[in-house]
Write a protein that binds this DNA or RNA. Structure first.
Length: 867
RNA sequence: GCGGGCGUGGUGAAACCGGUAACCACAUCAGACUUAAAAUCUGACGCCGAGAGGCUUGCGGGUUCGAGUCCCGCCGCCCGCACCA
């Protein structure tokens, strides 16, 4: 009690401390990465943000995780690259321009400025000297260069594709602007229009993109699986059906792709897509079919409708011959469920073994013949009524296939039909098919990277010469009229043809913003280059990214496109790696309770006061005191108003508290619930660490027994070993638990252990904290009078000797239930442990004088006595 | 429909290879300090039971000396894809 005043260290003041240490780091330029640093490289990257206006808690979580890894790896002696940039093109800037009459560029750069300040207030160890914004000509110039390289290398094609067309606004709509089949602004029914557009030939790499997934061992299994399904590789047979007496103008054959050639003897019909050439040929003389095709097109738009859509078909009256029996013919339908984009746009229907075919056959009275008998079924009694059987089994009703397994039948059909000739080619061909389609990159938008080509009446499509890059967006832009402003801007569009010099027009499509984010990780390796997208040797050294961290929502598109770009960039000589991201981590969302007032309006958490009530909690509005209903916990979103502004949290608690809370509690891949109690708990811990560290330095009186010294040192080194392992595996919540444990041990040891042991343990505590709460750690480091900055300090070495105990306490089970403990020397052999256990009173009592049937001793773990 | 994941105290969770279920934290309760409150410190805290003890990882089975963990069958929730032949 005497030294109470002396021990009352001042409260840690994050508001003063955090900007101070940020200034110290900046002054020493601590986080600038040099490409010529000889140490081993480590590239940690978090998905760069879209500059929407302000950062949100999801950003705080994402960047806090990345910063832990970056600071830890730096302490471990790596040359760490940890850059930041802005995914700055996109629709919201255009929306803001339309709604608020602002310039998209100014709006975007203003947002970037705000968000940069916010990120800097988090104390992230970022190399800001490498900052890039994708909307800057210094970035998209190189993207245009690569587009031209890809074009030359045959990785870009141009063909027609459907777009969403708003007939009232006369504009192309992005998918997210189509709501329930209607334009988001006009409310008009959206039509599908064919437009000539640019495509990246990602399907050229479908096989490799599929196969290399297996090598991405540090990717979540879930993401690999999602990509695998998206790529959708299948092995099947393309087979040709000859038409039986086709009328004039109708093709003589139809090609069909099937993964189930084994079921060929169960075929009952053939169906082609509404867009299939055969359908068009028949429709030429059939107004009824024209109507049917038009109806199919109308249905195409609405996503939900497909779900419930009935299988509909139109009987063309044509018939095809069965490949194994020219006398056996099948009717040919045009069907609404057959997709022109997949396979050959035509299928043969085997109702017994495909649910869709069965629904269709039942509707049109086509019947079914089961040809695969499930294991354990009697073939004689096996019938299909309204549930198709798509499993394996033995072939029946299939002539020469009877008795075979489905796999054998597949091979037998393929072998025979590959050898059979129809006209001048084999009837069938084995073939691999993918669901993946080419990547349409054309967007009829202003705020994107211009596609660097010129359309000339006599020369056609002419690439912009590399020396003329970048093709910059016009500065002056107006969104008063609907449509793409670039199309109206003739001053910008009109250019001489680079090839013949005649009057020509610029391409007005800009690139999908996914292109911008498909190579930024490579640009970060040398963003100062003005003439080239990358320095290939430098890119080779840094890539792949060692640890990439971001949201699961990018599991497919962004990551797949980046994987495509890695391949394409290597092909055209810009270096990098086969795979862009060696390690991937997908973090969970930040969620929060929702609140609604009596009128049903959403209420912000900041306006809600929570009171503990009997058996639960009650919420009241801070201003009106009116009761507020507590709703379900949901993802923080503006629409539900359940957002907490990082600025507010940093202002009242500090960045360290926010970071600590985001890393504690929930496993990083799971959602974390933001609660006021949780932040306060984190904040209390900040103060506790500060008190402990200060108290240690203020106490030099107590002596400390060797046993107490050892206990504190053991606790510190145990925590060190555990945190090290858990950071490596990105298990930040476990790191937090270990650090709490160490703080508890340190507090226990305060009155007992000696100053050297306490100082050592406190130093370790501070270093463990440093990746997570860097400002607090820096302040504590100074209090401990340790030299330099903790941000520059090498990671401490674990003293392995301190991790092993001399004796171990083993649980003793009798018949699998824990009944006692036994403490034995660590090195005790099995016989010694067994003897010690059998001497225990509890064991004696249980055995009741008899010999045990069995004693299982698992060294260092457990003993089980079977009575 | 297809594919995948998850289910543990009041809450977030931990339990690595099948080996003491519940580390750590939040909340709650009690105590200390205080005129009081906050802050801080100490303690209790899975369930039943006064206790001894018994029970407990969504439910039901199985394998095993031993199962939260492995296998089979249900139930519930979540996510992704979706007419892909």
């Amino acid at each position: 009690m005497v030294r109470k005043d002396a021990l009352m260290a001042e409260r840690y003041n994050a508001k003063e401390s955090e900007p101070h240490w940020q200034a110290v780091w900046a002054e020493r330029d601590l986080f600038r990465t040099r490409n010529d640093d000889p140490r081993p490289t480590y590239y940690v990257l978090e998905m760069f943000p879209y500059p929407s206006g302000r950062i949100h808690m999801g950003h705080v979580r994402n960047y806090a995780m990345g910063d832990v890894v970056a600071r830890y790896k730096r302490a471990k002696g790596f040359n760490v690259l940890h850059p930041m940039g802005w995914d700055a093109f996109g629709l919201p800037a255009e929306n803001a321009a339309m709604e608020r009459k602002v310039n998209p560029r100014e709006w975007t750069y203003a947002n970037i400025a705000t968000m940069r300040t916010q990120l800097q207030s988090m104390g992230l160890s970022l190399d800001w000297s490498r900052e890039i914004a994708t909307c800057d000509p210094s970035y998209y110039k190189h993207q245009q260069r690569m587009f031209l390289d890809f074009l030359k290398a045959g990785l870009v094609t141009r063909r027609t594709a459907k777009v969403n067309w708003d007939p009232v606004d006369h504009t192309v709509l992005a998918n997210e602007q189509v709501i329930d089949g209607r334009g988001w602004r006009s409310g008009a029914l959206v039509e599908q229009r064919e437009l000539t557009q640019w495509f990246f030939r990602i399907t050229d790499y479908a096989q490799d993109l599929n196969d290399r997934l297996d090598t991405l061992e540090r990717w979540p299994e879930k993401v690999r699986l999602m990509q695998k399904n998206w790529i959708g590789r299948s092995e099947g047979l393309e087979l040709r059906f000859a038409l039986d007496a086709p009328p004039a103008g109708v093709p003589e054959e139809v090609k069909v792709y099937t993964t189930r050639p084994d079921t060929l003897f169960g075929a009952k019909f053939l169906a082609v897509a509404a867009d299939h050439p055969l359908a068009a040929a028949v429709a030429a003389t059939s107004p009824a079919l024209q109507d049917f095709i038009a109806a199919c097109h109308r249905m195409g738009t609405a996503q939900e409708a497909i779900d419930t859509a009935e299988k509909l078909g139109f009987d063309t009256g044509l018939r095809v011959r069965h490949p194994f029996d020219p006398a056996w013919t099948l009717p040919v339908y045009v069907a609404n469920f057959v997709l022109m984009e997949y396979g050959t746009g035509a299928v043969f229907g085997c109702p017994a073994h495909d649910q869709r075919d069965l629904d269709f056959a039942n509707k049109y009275g086509l019947g079914n013949t089961p040809v695969v008998c499930p294991p354990g079924q009697d073939p004689a009694s096996f019938v299909i009524t309204d549930t198709a059987y798509d499993g394996d089994g033995r072939m029946i009703n299939s002539r020469f296939l009877d008795g075979m397994t489905t796999q054998q039948a597949f091979a037998a059909v393929a072998d025979r039909l590959e050898a059979e000739i129809l006209g001048d080619a084999p009837v069938a061909q084995r073939r691999v098919q993918f669901r993946l389609r080419d990547w349409g990159v054309s967007r009829q938008r202003y705020w994107g990277c211009p596609i660097p080509v010129i359309h000339c009446e006599s020369c056609g499509v002419v690439p912009v010469p590399v020396e003329d890059l970048p093709v910059t967006l016009p500065e002056e832009v107006s969104f008063d009229q609907p449509g793409n402003p670039l199309e109206r801007d003739l001053a910008w569009r009109r250019v001489p043809c680079p090839s013949c010099g005649a009057d020509a027009l610029r391409e007005t499509d800009t690139m999908d913003t996914f292109v911008d984010s498909s190579w930024y990780f490579a640009r970060f390796t040398a963003p100062w280059l003005t003439d080239e997208p990358t320095d290939p040797a430098t890119a080779d050294r840094w890539l792949p990214v060692d640890q990439y961290i971001g949201g699961i929502e990018h599991a497919i598109l962004h990551l797949l496109y980046s994987r495509f770009f890695a391949r394409a960039m290597r092909k055209v000589g810009w270096g990098g790696a086969d795979e862009p991201f060696a390690g991937l981590f997908t973090q969970g969302m930040v969620v929060h309770e929702t609140y609604k007032d009596a009128a049903g309006a959403w209420v912000q958490p900041a306006e809600v006061r929570i009171v503990a009530a009997d058996g639960g909690r009650q919420a009241f509005h801070v201003k009106t005191d009116a009761p507020v209903a507590i709703g379900p916990i949901e993802k923080m979103s503006k629409s539900k108003r359940n957002v907490v502004d990082p600025d507010d949290i940093i202002a009242s608690y500090g960045a360290d508290t926010a970071r600590w809370f985001m890393l504690s509690d929930s496993p990083p891949e799971r959602d974390v619930i933001w609660t006021e109690d949780g932040v306060q708990g984190a904040s209390r811990f900040v103060q506790r660490v500060w008190r402990i560290v200060n108290e240690i330095t203020e106490r030099s009186d107590s002596g400390g027994s060797p046993a107490d010294d050892l206990a504190v040192r053991k606790a510190a080194h145990k925590a060190l070993a555990a945190v090290e392992e858990d950071i490596e595996r990105l298990r930040f919540n476990r790191c937090v638990a270990h650090i709490y444990e160490l703080a508890n041990s340190l507090q226990d040891g305060l009155g007992r252990a000696g100053p050297p042991a306490l100082a050592e343990a406190a130093g370790i505590l501070v270093q463990l904290l440093a990746p997570m709460m860097p400002h607090l750690a820096e302040a504590c480091w100074a209090v401990l009078a340790r030299p330099g900055l903790v941000a520059e300090a090498a990671w401490p070495q674990v003293e392995r000797d301190l991790l092993v105990e001399d004796s171990v306490t083993l649980p003793v089970q009798i018949n699998g239930k824990k009944r006692a403990d036994v403490t034995v020397p660590r090195e005790a052999d099995v016989a010694a442990v067994e003897a010690a256990v059998l001497a225990l009173e509890a064991v004696q009592r249980a055995l009741d004088g008899k010999a045990p049937r069995k004693v299982i001793v698992v060294p260092q773990r457990i003993v089980n006595v079977v009575a």
